[in-house]
């Protein structure tokens, strides 16, 4: 394996292909990747501008997804549900015909 940082990115000198790097992104981000694989993965990103760009946009999309926020439960909605539940719980079971 040649680790020439000046090599054109299309040469893809590492044994890890762009497809395998893409498959492994999730494990890398979640920290589930073995250290030796991590080194090869990072080395590929340094040499391959396509994978580097893909990785950045994958991670950016994930960050954006995680930042999707909804408001907390409105207190009036919470109170309404609780009131509904109290009524339902206290209601006597309907008589069988």
């Amino acid at each position: 394996m040649h680790d020439n940082i000046d090599a054109p990115h299309t040469e893809n000198p590492s044994p890890l292909t762009c497809q395998r790097v893409t498959d492994a992104i999730m494990d890398y981000i979640s920290g589930d990747m073995a250290p030796e694989t991590t080194a090869v993965f990072e080395s590929h990103l340094r040499r391959c501008s396509d994978c580097d760009a893909f990785f950045n946009t994958y991670r950016g999309t994930l960050r954006a997804t995680r930042s999707l926020a909804y408001d907390n439960i409105p207190p009036e909605l919470s109170n309404r549900v609780l009131q509904f539940l109290h009524n339902a719980i206290q209601k006597p079971p309907s008589a069988n015909p």
């Binding site: 299309t10 292909t17 762009c18 497809q19 396509d50 760009a53 893909f54 950045n56």
Partner: peptide, 23 residues
């Protein structure tokens, strides 16, 4: 989904890094 050539390279080249525009 990303597409790849038979040798495992990205089919689309170059892949554009738009993560800064995302922010």
């Amino acid at each position: 989904l990303p597409q790849f050539q038979a040798d495992g390279h990205h089919r689309e080249q170059p892949v554009i890094d738009w993560s800064h525009n995302l922010e």
